[in-house]
Design a protein around this nucleic acid. Structure first.
Lengths: 320, 320
DNA sequence: GTCGATTTTTGTCAGCTGACAACAATCTAC
DNA sequence: GTAGATTGTTGTCAGCTGACAAAAATCGAC
């Protein structure tokens, strides 16, 4: 796919007034994106288009699913709101690529479902988009709108890769850099989709922990164990993040590490109290820290005489 | 104010389906709050009320300002959207507490301003709210909506406290716990409001750095220095967070710390390569770490002979 | 004035995510 | 086949914010 920057003004997020003169790090950048940003983004997609009412029965869902589970309480809220006050924001659809007279949702799936259930037309903007532009728009709208969890974004990225999109497209759809997308691919490569679905959206479980889980699951017998843990009745009654934690805990007890010998710590002080020392020793090493008045000088003395000391140690060692 | 839990269903955020069975930490909790949450919150405020069109010239702003600066580009976007498609979401107003026939905005200030500029009525829900409920609703709406920065939230909290509201009310308005509100009060107590306004909303500058700045500003002469730094022409041309960083850097060069001597690090290895050592030495101390094969044994040997070694050191030291 | 309860303050931590950097793998030109 | 460029992978870090805990301050009953 050689067509780049098709919606350059949208996809590049080139809102220079918001671009700081210094790097914005981590969680803060995510949180700065506000509803206003979202409104602006959707606005650019729909700029200059008119809104029409469409029969929901002529509308099909997107060819990429983006949400892992549906919060039926939130859907009931939306239903009630639309019933009372109509539909606040229009959805975006494109003419169906295969079927004349029908439309395909770019974003607004739940609003369509609510309108259908209410027996009402849905307010929509119709725009001709190719597949690539469609998935980028859908991805960006959903990323901004619901603050999808790491694993939901990762699953979306996996589906885009499975559909054949290149990394640049996926990066645009998720507003993510190459490293982030790569980690999503690693996780969804190592953890089977079935396991991910059984865990669920796991709100508040971040990338590092998913990576950790993916490495655990890769070990022998752990996949079977994981399914056993998820089969347990009490596990499935937990919410999604608690299921994640239960799975992690369960896999960790099977993958016991060889425990290192515990470091022992003692102290030493010179007879004249001008030096204090911290000593740590275990089966694999030794550590000596000297402090107070003469500590540095005594330390250099020790350092200068390590060869001689080592010779003496070897002799004493032989006799011992 | 003894009236509590006036809007219990709203203020307590008791959406049990979203309540995890484990603590949700830090930034992730903030980010999980999504537009859906916001929609639900506003929905509960307006539930059962009808929407009416109101002449913007009969509407006054809230008695508490909540936003530090106005992004005029975002306002232009809103203006254009309302011109093209009308007003998506109604605002919330209450009958004006002092003036009959007028209303006071709980939330929706920019939409009112845009409607006024377009010469159109504004869609609104009218609800009788007392002052306390008003500020809680305003605070929660604005907290959720724009992801206000730490200092904007802190300034809002400061205004509420100056208006006489108790900590519980302020905690509700900001959806924040006592410790968070307390830190906001410390910062806005130590940094004069004029300095804060000149810095601006400082997106991405978090609580810890504001606390650090507040402690710096509290030192003698630093307030004058801060004003001088902010007066500089090149400082004011920076964006808000960069101004913050410039101010911090400027104040820190005046509050110079005594630099510690730099620790030097060397290594040692036994002649037979069965021990490697890391040696760190500076003016105040010394550190020796031994590793590899015989490291632990040699270390114990050293530890057992520290008294003798120290005696030798003292003798050598006298001669040296 | 004292004591216990409550509130406030402040230091610190956990886990988040964007980003950076180093390294590995892949690709392309020659 | 090789070398340089590009892409992808992974370890790690910085700063965020909610929360916890300990200490300090305040309040109210006696």
């Amino acid at each position: 796919m050689a067509r780049k920057n098709l919606l350059a003004g949208l996809m590049d997020q080139n809102d220079t007034t918001d671009t700081p003169a210094y790097p914005m790090r981590g969680a803060s950048k995510t949180m700065i994106r506000s509803i206003d940003e979202l409104a602006k983004q959707a606005e650019k997609l729909m700029e200059g288009e008119t809104i029409v009412d469409i029969d929901p029965d002529t509308i099909d869902g997107s060819f990429v699913t983006d949400r892992m589970e549906d919060d039926s309480e939130q859907f009931q809220d939306l239903l009630r709101a639309m019933q009372e006050r109509g539909q606040d924001s229009p959805i975006l659809v494109r003419p169906h690529p295969q079927t004349d007279g029908r439309y395909q949702i770019v974003f607004g799936h739940r609003r369509v479902r609510a309108a259908r259930q209410l027996g009402r037309p849905v307010r929509a903007v119709i725009k001709a988009l190719d597949d690539r532009t469609h998935v980028i728009a859908q991805g960006q709208e959903n990323s901004a709108r619901a603050n999808l969890t790491f694993i939901e974004r990762a699953a979306f990225a996996r589906r885009l890769e499975d559909l054949g999109y290149d990394r640049e497209t996926i990066m645009s759809a998720l507003s993510a850099n190459a490293a982030s997308v790569s980690k999503m691919m690693s996780v969804t490569e190592r953890i089977p989709a079935g396991i991910i679905e059984r865990i669920g959206s796991a709100a508040s479980i971040g990338r590092e922990r998913w990576v950790e889980l993916s490495l655990l699951i890769g070990r022998p017998n752990n996949l079977t164990k994981a399914n056993d843990i998820l089969d347990a009745e009490d596990t499935m009654s937990l919410d999604s993040s608690a299921r994640f934690n239960a799975l992690m805990a369960g896999l960790k007890t099977t993958a016991k590490r060889v425990t290192k010998s515990v470091a022992t710590g003692t102290t030493w002080a010179s007879a004249d109290s001008s030096i204090s020392a911290q000593i740590k020793s275990d089966s694999s090493g030794f550590s000596l820290s000297l402090k107070a008045g003469n500590g540095a000088k005594f330390g250099r003395f020790l350092a200068d005489n390590l060869d001689a000391l080592y010779d003496r140690f070897l002799k004493d060692g032989d006799r011992g």
